[in-house]
Amino acid sequence: MSEAAIAEAAAEAGANTRSLAADAWRDLRRNPVFWVSAVIIALLVTMAVVPRLFTSTDPHSCRLRDSLLPPSGEHWFGTNLQGCDIYARIVYGSRASLEVGFLSVAFVAVIAVILGMIAGYYGGWSDALIARVTDIVLGIPLLLGAIVILSSIELPSVWPVVLALGLLGWTTATRIVRSSVISAKQQDYVQAARMLGANNRRIMGRHIAPNAMAPVIVILTITLGQFIAVEATLSFLGIGVKGNTITWGKDIAAATARVTTSLGPVLFPSAFLALTVLAFIMLGDAVREAFDPKLR
């Protein structure tokens, strides 16, 4: 194959990727599920970054004599056992959830892209080794593994949870990167570039990474939702984000101390948590559908 022919093939492949993305975007734009979940996520992110936009109440200023007030103009969602404003605590609690979600998914993305590309592109013993390590980590259910890690770290911040989720949660994404790299590698233009002796890192960066992106983004979006759920579960069990940080999981756990008196302190944070997880899962689903029309 001549240089020119390869350049042409590569350009065409690039154009294909681009038109695939353009098609996907056109589909996405028409999908109400995408818009609903995107708007919810945008609101949540704003809430996490500038909570003051949503409430002027201090979530920490609680008066015990205001304990368990019903919803009112002053306290939209009522107050909890300690007399704190539930709405304010939900607004401020969103930060921990989203921080854990985004940071641990970024962690997973780095591990998955590096390991997946090595395994998929080079194959051979590095692939076998990575597969064995993946098997081992897959052998530990996420929640249990996180419990073990977190029960020995006492740091009062989100980082221990991020570390635990990142260390244990990369297996599925890695497998997906690996298989999309393998299928991208078999494309003609990549074969041609290899025959010409193009350097490996260049081939991976220019040709393979863009093609392998879509499924990785999908799985990472869905994983983000799952990680937020796991963080809340860990906090509910009293082992998640430690210290004074407000989290939905901790508030739900605290509210269950007096179960029979009032439903609000449990229901409202639960609803926000569920909505957040749902938004990320729906977004992931919508993107997946846009990139893979066969799934419909």
């Binding site: 809340a232 579960t233 739900i252 269950t256 029979t260 439903l263 569920a274 997880v277 899962i281």
Partner: peptide, 22 residues
């Protein structure tokens, strides 16, 4: 099923326990 998948199990459990007890 999508809704059930999105609601963490502890939320489902806690809300049911609460309602059941109340």
């Amino acid at each position: 099923t999508l809704v059930v998948i999105s609601i963490p199990v502890f939320v489902i459990g806690q809300v049911l326990a609460l309602v059941g007890a109340r």
